[in-house]
């Protein structure tokens, strides 16, 4: 059994790696498709005038060699986590991204957990009170949040809670100038996390709530629910013991698929709240036209999604006994 699971995971991992390989190749050709000299494209706005740096890039990526050789060099570099150097920060792209990774993981992780818990809860309540006022209220709220642009919501939230009410910080991950340690530091980061995580999470809360509600209602029409009712079970217990678990399966699938969107959303939230993660890094790279860094962030965030999907797959086959390994 456990060997089967390992084999399954291995199979999935191989698939994920293949996806990443394709993305790497895609990145490679994208740089070449961009207008202008690839070295200048890679170097970014700031580095494009530094002839020494450009030469260094040309050598590192073999830019004066034939295309297939360049591809080989590129893939080989990627395999060694070598994505080149950013001119402005004078740092390897990979290190820079990894430096920012924890902040993004914290933000997206918090938003993910928050939205999943809140969304599923709201969806369950709405389904349990189908066609009554809590259902309508939740449905309307979900619709509104589903329609609201994330970045705008983030701005309005910071306007309200930071500027007017002054309850929460609207900027960065830690208080500037303070050097907290231990629990104080955790608390400080926590306070800074509230607004970004909440605004990023709200959109996905809406997504999960709608999905859970639909799934619950559909599941509650299945035959085995009738069986449970015929046992003389209380409706609330039927909902909890029989409907919920079955209804959550599609939500798990969706949650995995949404991982990519969560990272996309992080670009916007991190930009608004100056959260020092890879999303913010992406925005900076855009600003400085540092395409090598941009593609690096893109690649790493894709890798995160692959990993996320792998985790979802594993969770799925643990939750659903019908999945044959």
């Amino acid at each position: 059994m456990s060997i089967k699971i390992l084999l399954y995971i291995a199979g999935r991992a191989v698939k994920g790696l293949l996806v990443l390989l394709v993305i790497a190749v895609f990145n490679f050709f994208l740089i070449r498709a961009a207008p202008g000299d690839p070295a200048q494209v890679m170097a970014g706005e700031a580095g494009a005038t530094d002839e020494v740096f450009l030469q260094q890039l040309r050598e590192q990526f073999g830019l004066d060699q034939p295309l297939y050789y360049q591809l080989w060099v590129y893939i080989n570099n990627m395999l060694h986590f070598d994505m080149g150097i950013t001119y402005r920060q004078q740092m390897p792209v990979f290190d820079l991204i990894m430096d920012r990774m924890p902040a993004t993981l914290l933000l997206t992780g918090a938003a993910f957990v928050l939205s999943l818990l809140l969304g599923v809860l709201a969806g369950v309540v709405a389904a349990a009170k189908h066609r009554k006022w809590p259902d309508s209220a939740i449905t309307v709220a979900a619709l509104v949040f589903y329609a609201t642009p994330l970045f705008w919501l983030a701005m309005m939230a910071s306007l309200l809670f930071s500027v007017y009410l002054d309850w929460l910080p609207s900027f960065g991950m830690q208080t500037v100038g303070e050097d907290f340690a231990g629990w104080d530091k955790v608390r400080d980061i926590g306070i800074h996390l509230v607004l970004p995580a909440a605004t990023l999470g709200l959109f996905f809360t809406a997504v999960y709530a709608r999905m859970t509600r639909t799934s619950m209602i559909e599941t509650s029409r299945l035959d085995f629910v009738k069986t449970a009712k015929a046992k003389g079970m209380k409706p609330s217990r039927v909902l909890y013991r029989h409907v919920l678990r079955n209804a959550l399966l599609p939500v798990v699938t969706l949650a995995g698929l949404q991982a990519g969107q969560l990272i996309g959303g992080a670009v916007l939230t991190e930009t608004v709240f100056a959260w020092p993660g890879i999303g913010r890094l992406m925005f900076d790279a855009l600003f400085q036209r540092d395409y090598n860094l941009l593609l690096g962030v893109f690649f790493i965030s894709s890798a995160m999604v692959v990993l996320f999907n792998l985790i979802t797959d594993v969770i799925y086959c643990v939750v659903d006994p019908r999945i044959e390994l």
Binding site: G260, G264, L268, F298, V305, V306
Partner: peptide
């Protein structure tokens, strides 16, 4: 579908 769509759109 795996590629984070918004990030891809930005890059493109």
């Amino acid at each position: 579908q795996t590629v984070p769509s918004f990030a891809l759109a930005i890059v493109l």
